[in-house]
Simulated scan of single mutants.
Amino acid sequence: MIDAKKLQTALGVTADGIIGRNTYRALFARFGAAPERAGELALSANVHFPAYGIMDSPLRLAHLMAQLVHESGGFRYMEEIASGSAYEGRKDLGNVIPGDGKRYKGRGPIQITGRANYRTYGQRIGIDIENHPEIAAVPSIGLHLALEYWKRNGLNTLADADNVRGITKLINGGFNGLGDREAQLVKAKELLA
């Protein structure tokens, strides 16, 4: 089990619970983000991690990082490599207009997918990504969307229970890449211990 006080000390958390931007930058870089991308993600994390309760539990940070690392290929991809045609006509994703599959393919470090998710999560963070889906691939905005998805789906509770399978199912809809997600979680726990 990761000790919250040790984690906060190691990350340089101040008395008001804020971690320095450079510490977040180093964390994202450690998981594969290129320097410029690590910097942008760090700015977003510095603002949003405390607001979403990510720093309330070390397991939350470890689980979040493990999932984001897997989904984004180590923060290399903020847009799904595939064309998105596999999502064409997927009413469960809100893709009801021809072309929606490609237009609303996975973006951001958690790979928000589908017109309905773009609408919902864009509204929740106050940015119209439904009409401007490419914005979801901006790392800082994509991370904010990922955190809103994390919150809305109750993933902090599953992280606190150390339930990687439950988190994976809610993010992926199944267990694709479970082995890598588990390996990333082990790495995150070791790094944050």
Rank of each mutant, 00 (worst) to 15 (best):
L7F: 06
A26C: 07
L185M: 06
Y104D: 06
N46R: 13
H144S: 05
A33Y: 10
G73L: 04
G106A: 06
L11V: 07
E190I: 02
V69N: 13
I129H: 12
E134G: 10
V96K: 14
A29D: 04
Q123T: 08
I19A: 06
A86Q: 13
E80L: 01
G39P: 04
I129V: 15
G142W: 06
G99W: 11
D162V: 00
A33G: 03
Q67Y: 03
L145Y: 04
Q8H: 12
A33W: 12
W150H: 15
N176V: 07
N22W: 03
L64C: 01
E148P: 01
L192T: 01
G32M: 11
V13H: 01
S72Q: 03
K105N: 12
L93F: 05
D92Y: 10
L170D: 06
I18K: 13
L27E: 00
Y118Q: 12
L68E: 00
R60Q: 14
L158R: 10
L41N: 10
L41P: 08
S44D: 09
D16N: 09
F28T: 11
F175C: 00
D128T: 05
E134A: 15
N46C: 04
F175S: 08
D128C: 10
W150C: 13
N163S: 14
L158C: 10
F49V: 01
G39Q: 06
R76W: 07
L27T: 01
G89Q: 08
R165A: 15
I167S: 14
K91F: 11
R60D: 13
Y104G: 11
N22F: 04
A183P: 08
F28V: 10
L145T: 08
I81R: 13
Y87V: 03
Y118D: 04
R124C: 02
I19C: 02
G74K: 03
W150I: 13
L43E: 15
N172V: 08
K5N: 09
S85I: 15
A82F: 01
L41G: 10
L158Q: 09
G17A: 02
D180P: 02
K105Q: 02
R25C: 00
A15K: 00
P133L: 13
I167M: 15
G154F: 05
